[in-house]
Design a protein around this nucleic acid. Sequence first.
DNA 1: CGGAAGGAAGAGGCCACATCACCTT
DNA 2: ATAAGGTGATGTGGCCTCTTCCTTC
Length: 405
Amino acid sequence: MGYMCDFCGEQRSMVYCRSDAACLCLSCDRNVHSANALSKRHSRTLVCERCESQPAIVRCTEERVSLCHDCDWKSHEASTFSPTHKRQTINCYSGCPSAAELSSIWSSILQIPSVDDTTCEEELGLMSIAENSLKTCSCVGSESNTNHAETETENVNVLVGSSSSLPEIKSATQNLGLQSAASVDAFPSKILGSSPFEDDDGFYDDFDMDEVDLNLENYEELFGVTLNSSEDLLENGGLDSLFTKKGISAAGSNCQNAVIAQGSSSAQRVNPQPACSIASAESMMSSKTEPIPCFTSRKTHSNLSFSGLTGEGTTYDYQDCGASSMHHMGEPPWCPPSSESSQPSVSRSNAVMRYKEKKKNRKFVKRVRYASRKARADVRRRVKGRFVKAGDAYDYDPLSQTRSC
DNA sequence: CGGAAGGAAGAGGCCACATCACCTT
DNA sequence: ATAAGGTGATGTGGCCTCTTCCTTC
């Protein structure tokens, strides 16, 4: 990682943004991608430590380097010396995670340098961090552990990538001979996707229900039930109950990255095609009265569409970073871990109430793209709010706040 | 309990024009 | 290959209108 940040040109680049095709330092990454909702959707990953210009897709645990596809092939597939190296798939992330969160996510990979947390700390509540979780390739975890701290995390990641619930993770962890399930408990719950009801307040604070707008196209056809909105989904018992009605397991769906029917074996029963449409939260909401044009072939695809936690997931993002990596991570937060809906209705109603409250208070921040145009508009005279020709009569002058007539 | 009426809140359109982006010469 | 000129598209803020949602009766 010797190349400089493409943005500031001062710091060493650590992150590769595919959308921007740029290598960025952590500081610039956060600055650039906290600019607006669109930029937050950009999926980023580590920079290849060998060529230092391509996005890394795997981490060689033997050589302790992050490698892009080409470098990985050169190092492992084409090499006779190290074809058996254990490699760990590196997933991309989006949003604006803090250094601490990045550190926890990449603890097994990097020493994250300290970054000014103030830049977008307040945005963190809106960001999806669970999608940052790592998924390892199947070759990891089948061997005994030698490096405690690192390997433990890696194995947990394996489980994250393949399991759907915490109990299963714990069980599998024990089966794999890890030291104890405590390490799993210690791992950030957001990444593990554990039940939200274990910590009602804490989870929902991060969960940001207002950002989750679910859009189930043709749900009536699929499930034979009526669902008007995500609120209905919450109130009616969640996705699990929906699936249960059709004998479909919702395991593997995650509220934050609930790309159902994309790689999930259970969901594939519903949708054998990997195609999945993901729209922004706003477009989801607009679809309440009007279908989204991009949803095509609805008769043949289930098109179970979810926005990410932040409403920032895009088809590109998911395709870009290995698509199905993030949807195995647990039950939807509104669903209890067990199918018998043992969670008291109080928690659900609380969640609904909080969701409505946050939705009500949602702010749509407008971002000025061209300051020069703003400056011009700020001094332009108007009549009833409309711009008037220069020299014409006006009723509002931003400069003098007076009328010409 | 359901419907009507009224108020509150939000979304979208309109306006002029400097600036941007693209194309042609 | 580069520069200059032309042209259509874009974006900016305040106000108004319309629609939707919520509360009250």
